[in-house]
Amino acid sequence: MVPVSAYLILAVVLFGIGAIGVLTSRNMIVLFMCIELMLNAANLAMVAFSRALNVVDGHVIVFLVLTVAAAEAAVGLAMIITIFRNRETINIDRYSILKW
């Protein structure tokens, strides 16, 4: 039996990779994938806790989070296409018209 803490440590590691990826990545698509990774880290923690506590709430939450993540990805990819048509780059350093 794998202890809960192992899952939680994996979740922290996944979340850390995702968060660092969002902060350092310059490619819009990679950045978006990193955000999905963060959401999945949360999902993993939910399922682990749910199993450890013997309640099903966590499992249900994961389905809803997956749905929300899919909606977010749909809007996000559409917007990435829009800005690519507009600027012909997905490098976020180039999105710098707005600044003070």
Partner: peptide, 17 residues
Amino acid sequence: VEAGIKYLVVGAFSSAL
């Protein structure tokens, strides 16, 4: 469009947090 993409990144990131 640039405002939208910035809001998207920040909004999705903060939701994940």
